[in-house]
């Protein structure tokens, strides 16, 4: 249920931006969900539905889009993808990454050279790609 905390953050941001821009209506918001964090989309969707009640977002179309994550080794340059690397991690480590994605650095190494010094590219967390408003 920590998805709820993320949904709260997203909603606050959208409301802040809409206010700042003087939006009359918030038509749509596209939310990107990085695959690294393994967010439960059902739970997130439920949280959004509850949280938008009685806010200017009640009628807004909230679109959730996954964004693939991959890793890139800073030492040897190899790229690899997340699902191969983490399927063997087990529940506790997956959960750690679920809460704080950057903790992946404690658990994964470059498959070619063994370095812990790699970059998380693409889908690290959750963010608002854009919002569509009318003035």
């Amino acid at each position: 249920m920590h998805e709820w905390a993320l949904a709260e953050a997203v909603i606050s941001t959208i409301l802040n931006v809409a206010k700042e821009k003087g939006a009359k209506k918030i038509i749509k918001a596209e939310i990107k969900i990085g695959t690294l964090q393994q967010i439960e989309v059902d739970v997130l969707t439920f949280a959004f539905r509850e949280l938008v009640k009685n806010t200017p977002l009640e009628k807004t179309e909230i679109k959730l889009k996954p964004e693939e994550v991959y890793f890139k080794c800073r030492v040897c340059g190899v790229r690899w993808n997340f699902s191969n690397a983490t399927s063997a991690l087990g529940r506790e480590k997956s959960e750690a990454i679920h809460f704080i994605p950057d903790l992946v650095h404690a658990f994964i190494r470059c498959p070619r050279c063994g370095s812990p010094d790699f970059e998380v590219v693409g889908g690290r967390g959750i963010w608002v790609e854009y919002i569509k408003i009318s003035k």
Binding site: A5, E8, A9, T13, N16, V17, Y130, I131, K132, S134
Partner: peptide, 20 residues
């Protein structure tokens, strides 16, 4: 004139820290 705008939003985590 009705105009729709696409606007960018900052890191959502920043919006919730003060609340926390």
């Amino acid at each position: 004139v009705h105009k729709n705008f696409k606007v960018r939003a900052p890191d959502p985590r920043l919006a919730i820290i003060d609340e926390r």
